[in-house]
Design a protein around this nucleic acid. Structure first.
Lengths: 147, 147
DNA sequence: TCACTAAGTTCTTTTTTGGAACTCACTCTT
DNA sequence: AAGAGTGAGTTCCAAAAAAGAACTTAGTGA
C-alpha cells in the first residue's frame, strides 16, 4: 500500500497517520506549540534538512494544521502558526510525551516538563470520557466496526 | 539528523517518535488492540510489505511494546501481544482517532467508533490532570525546560 | 560594494519502501 | 508417498524518500 492511499482509508487511525505518521511532522508541531514560527529557526532546532522541512510545512498547511502568514513585505517572508485544527493536536502531543517519559528512557535528563499553571506541579494526564468523567481504558470501551 | 539519533534526544517528543514516528507502527499497534496477533493476518489487513512488517515487529519488540510468544511447536510459530508498555499506548491511539475524526475527513464512512461500555454511546475523550481533575489545554500549562 | 539574512530550491548520495518471489518446517489431502 | 497448503519469515530488485551540501532570490545594513 502506498503512502497517499492512506488518507482514503476508512479507519481514523490510518487517516490520522496520513497527516502525522512520519519522523518529523510531530516535531514541527511541537516547535509550533513552543512558539517557533520561522523556517530557519525550526531547521536549526530540529536538524532536519531544509528540503524535508519545506515539504512538511507545505503538507501541514494543506492539511489545515498550519497557516502560512506573511510577517513582512520586501522581501515577503512567511511564518507558520497553528490553526485551530493544529491546536487540537495538543492532547496527542501530551499523551505522546507522557508515554515517552515513562517508556523510552532518556540517555540524559529530559528536556521539558509540562507544569500545571494551577498547581505549579508536573501534570499527570489521564484520558476521561467527558460524558461520564470516568477514565478511558481499553478494557472499559468496545469498538464498533462500521466500515 | 539521522533517524536513530532521535532516541538519544533529551526531548520526550523526539524519544516517543523514535519508536512510533513512522507510517506503519501505530497501525500495527492498532491491530494489536483489535486482537490481531499473527504475522500473515496483520500483513493482509494492513497491506504492508512483509519485509517492513517484520522490521517493525522486531523494533516494537526491542522497544518493549510487543512481546513475541510461541503459540505452537513443530514448527514453532510466534504471535505478538502488547506488553504493559504497549497497552499504555492506548491514550495516544484514542486521541489520534479523536483528532482524525474531527480533522481528516473520511472519503467513505468511518470504519470504527469507540463506545463506552458504561453508556453504550461514543466516547468523547478529554485529557485532564489527575491531580486536579481539570482539563489540560495548551493555555493552562507552562513548559519548563530542563535540558 | 560586500557581507548578511530568511526562506526556500537544486543538486547528488544514502536509506527506506514497495512488490514479488523464494525458503523452511512442518501438516493435510489424495 | 507425492503434492498442495500454511505461517512466518527472508531475499532481491526497483522506486521513493531522506540526508547533506551548495545555490538562489530579494532584499538590508556597514
Amino acid at each position: 500500500m502506498k503512502w497517499d492511499t492512506l488518507e482514503n482509508e476508512p479507519c481514523p487511525v490510518a487517516r490520522g497517520l496520513s497527516v502525522l505518521g512520519d519522523r518529523w511532522t510531530m516535531m514541527v508541531v511541537r516547535d509550533c506549540f513552543l512558539g517557533i514560527r520561522r523556517f530557519d529557526q525550526m531547521q536549526q532546532r530540529l536538524g532536519i534538512t531544509r528540503h524535508v522541512l519545506a515539504d512538511r510545512l507545505r503538507k501541514l498547511e494543506t492539511a489545515g494544521v498550519l497557516r502560512r502568514d506573511p510577517y513582512q513585505d520586501r522581501p515577503v517572508r512567511y511564518e507558520y502558526r497553528l490553526t485551530e485544527q493544529g491546536k487540537a493536536l495538543y492532547p496527542i502531543l501530551v499523551t505522546l510525551i507522557d508515554w515517552a517519559e515513562d517508556n523510552v528512557p532518556p540517555k540524559t535528563v529530559t528536556a521539558m516538563t509540562i507544569l500545571s499553571q494551577e498547581t505549579g506541579r508536573p501534570i499527570d494526564p489521564i484520558l476521561v470520557d467527558s460524558n461520564t468523567g470516568n477514565p478511558i481504558t481499553h478494557r472499559n470501551v468496545t469498538v464498533r466496526k462500521t466500515g
